[in-house]
């Protein structure tokens, strides 16, 4: 009789385990974990649109012993009364940087920026930060109800934030986050991993 009790107890425990495996939390945790894996390439595209003006920052990152970052940025040109200003009011520039041993070298010159001193949080995929979650084995779509919590940054203000992730069992392939900034800009951030 006691054996039957213990087997039944084991079954209940297993069912509890299975039930916990099937929640959205598992998918969110999976995406969070996949983001922490090593990848050989990463493309980050940031687009900000306000009043019809589109500004962009594009970063192509190749990881290795020396990690290379090729970047292209389109920003509004600011004017210097002393001259030497860009020809256009929107200035596009690009460059290449290498990160090695935590130090950044751009165009052959080591930067004096305190890279190692900078510290940011990471995206928080806790289920309480989301609503309207749609998850399959390879995709996740959700509204981000708490952008501050998701960004891990209490000073970050955004609205209408949505997140989409595409992934396989082994890797995340694409992560998209779009939102409206506190200034009213429509922001789209796309990560592509390889």
């Amino acid at each position: 009789m006691k054996k039957v009790f213990y087997v039944a107890l084991a079954l209940v425990l297993a069912l509890v385990l299975l039930a916990s495996c099937s929640s959205y939390g598992e998918t969110l945790n999976k995406v969070s974990d996949l983001l922490k894996q090593d990848y050989s390439k990463l493309t980050v595209s940031v687009t900000s649109v306000r009043d019809g003006l589109e500004l962009t920052a594009l970063f192509n990152v190749e990881f290795g012993e020396k990690t290379t970052v090729n970047y292209t940025v389109k920003e509004m040109s600011k004017l210097n009364i002393e001259g030497g200003n860009p020809d256009s009011y929107i200035n596009e520039y690009s460059g290449s940087a290498v990160v090695e041993n935590g130090k950044l070298t751009e165009n052959g010159k080591e930067t004096d920026l305190p890279i190692e001193g900078l510290n940011f949080g990471e995206f928080n995929f806790s289920e309480r930060n989301f609503s309207d979650i749609e998850a399959t084995a390879t995709s996740l779509k959700a509204k981000v109800t708490d952008p501050k919590g998701f960004a891990g940054n209490n000073s970050f203000v955004a609205s209408d934030m949505k997140l989409t992730a595409l992934f396989s069992a082994e890797a995340i392939s694409e992560l998209t986050v779009e939102y409206t900034s506190q200034n009213g800009a429509n922001v789209l951030t796309v990560y592509r991993f390889e």
Partner: peptide, 11 residues
């Protein structure tokens, strides 16, 4: 990949 993303931010 934090080092790279921080570097990216620095740039």
């Amino acid at each position: 990949i934090s080092a790279v993303l921080l570097a990216l931010f620095a740039i």
